[in-house]
């Protein structure tokens, strides 16, 4: 294998990591808190939106998607689109029973 390194190895500052960690903890607390109120089907929606937000933060900062080539962002986006479509299709059943 050739010794080919990415010319731009991005180093994220420590502070950013801490900020993201804080955001993840806050969002987790919100996820738990939201179960105390009864929003009907919107409970699931809210949980999914928050989880999606957390996932995005992890992908973009911890997994360096933000600093990588665009093609990876497209790939991840496509995968998430497929996943979302599968969820929506499942709810075609549950919301119409």
């Amino acid at each position: 294998m050739s010794e080919h390194h990415n010319e731009h190895t991005h180093i994220t500052p420590f502070k950013t990591h801490l900020l993201i960690l804080g955001a993840l903890i806050v969002l987790t607390i919100v996820t738990v808190a939201i179960t105390w109120t009864n929003l009907g089907v919107w409970n699931t929606t809210a949980a999914m939106v928050i989880a999606g937000l957390k996932g995005t933060l992890v992908l973009f900062y911890f997994m360096h998607l933000k600093f990588d080539q665009k093609i990876y962002r497209v790939m991840v986006l496509l995968v998430l689109a497929v996943f979302a479509a599968v969820l929506i299709l499942t709810f075609f059943d549950y919301l119409n029973r």
Partner: peptide, 25 residues
């Protein structure tokens, strides 16, 4: 490969799934 993700419900036509889901699948 892509559309193949969205057709799984055809294995469940007699399972008691909702009508909307039936004809979509």
């Amino acid at each position: 490969a892509f559309v193949g993700y969205f057709v799984w419900g055809h294995h469940m036509f007699t399972s008691g799934m909702s009508g909307t889901a039936l004809y979509t699948f």
